[in-house]
Design a protein around this nucleic acid. Structure first.
Lengths: 212, 212
DNA sequence: TAGATTGTTAATCGATTAACAATC
DNA sequence: TAGATTGTTAATCGATTAACAATC
């Protein structure tokens, strides 16, 4: 309906705005300008105004943005104003780290099931959830109305998990395994690949002898 | 010397190429075309050729790229052909997950020290390393010639850690805490913020009633 | 009113893609 | 030679930034 065609870059900045706005609210700041936001987030103020203007007129000329109001708006845009159940596959270190991250809770993203196909891990308790075998994935996804899946298994198994998610009717996937996964085009997939971030970091380190 | 000015987007794709090339090599594939690469990695072949051409002529017309040769070249570009010591601060779940990730080892990125300022964690062993108190950061960074720092502490403490890294002479930082950190301009910082990825995911999920 | 700041249009900048001569 | 594929130039596309009228 009101989806003109928003670029991915814009959508990815919204959570960043949201996070900082929440911080402002916690500090009882009532109003914020694109200037302020830009300074704190290292972004151009015009860009911030433009990003927000894609979705409506949220600010007031001469004044700025009402913090609480803007939070509400961004949450609605990102569909964080409703509960969104999440399944996680891979109860290793990273999986545990994520499930303990209760930060999502206040944004209504909730990990409600954890799966692993390593027998020794099945039945273990992670963050109050019993690790389930992969054989229960499809039924659990359906019963618990899970719409988002997180993959934290080793690279070699990631495609299989993605396939299982797809078969179970998952609508969006966040993949932490260092592989590019193929999924049906109706499924949204984001690659959260920090090995890429880390490996690209060294490029920017100065040589001993050289100056750039 | 041979630094014309490469865009960040290009540098971030290099580790992706590298990873897949390593996979090809493991499967004893000798040669690969930009066509093949593009298909596997969901990228435009012209883009891949252009990315690589920034750094030299690595391919052969009519044939493609020699897998082993290209691996060597990319590793050299990313400075992964030498050992790069890494310090990690924050021995929580995520910190542990990262230090167990031995994937870096073959790329010569090595976590050689782990720090935390929570007393109960100091002295614990994580992946064969004893967790050290923050008070030892500066001296350890110097003695062990650590050049890269990873931050896996809660958001509220991340800026402090970044400041300590800066004071200790760290040259690049990978930050997992969900905050934008301010560091001196000579320090390279990457934000590996998966909460952003996760929160932006819901945006793309279809409404029940709507079609896009 | 004077100062501040939005929403938006226009200008700029940069990145991606297409196309093709060169050549293996 | 014919087919394949690079390296690179030119064309396109899209995103960022500047500028400013509108207005609180």
């Amino acid at each position: 309906m009101k989806t003109p065609k928003i670029s991915e870059a814009v959508v990815r900045r919204l959570p960043v705005y949201l996070r900082f706005l929440n911080e402002l609210k916690a500090n009882e700041v009532l109003t914020v300008s694109s200037q302020d936001l830009g300074q704190k987030l290292d972004l151009n103020p015009a860009q911030i105004r433009k990003d927000l203007a894609h979705f409506g007129e949220f600010g007031r000329k001469g004044i700025g943005y009402d913090v609480s109001y803007l939070i509400e708006k961004i949450r609605a845009i990102l569909k964080l104003d409703r509960v969104m159940n999440v399944a996680l596959v891979g109860a290793g270190n990273l999986g545990r780290a994520l499930s303990n991250y209760n930060a999502y809770l206040k944004d209504n993203m909730k990990i409600v099931a954890i799966f692993d196909n390593v027998p020794s891990k099945v039945g273990e308790t992670v963050n109050n959830l019993q690790v389930q075998p992969m054989s229960e994935l499809a039924s659990t996804v359906k019963n618990r109305e899970i719409r988002i899946g997180i993959i934290t298994v080793p690279a070699a198994e990631a495609q299989n998990v993605a396939d299982s998610f797809a078969a179970a009717g998952i609508e969006a996937i966040l993949n932490f395994a260092p592989v590019i996964l193929k999924v049906p085009s109706h499924i949204r997939i984001h690659h959260a690949d920090f090995t890429t971030d880390l490996l690209s970091l060294a490029y920017y380190i100065e040589e001993e002898e050289e100056h750039e």
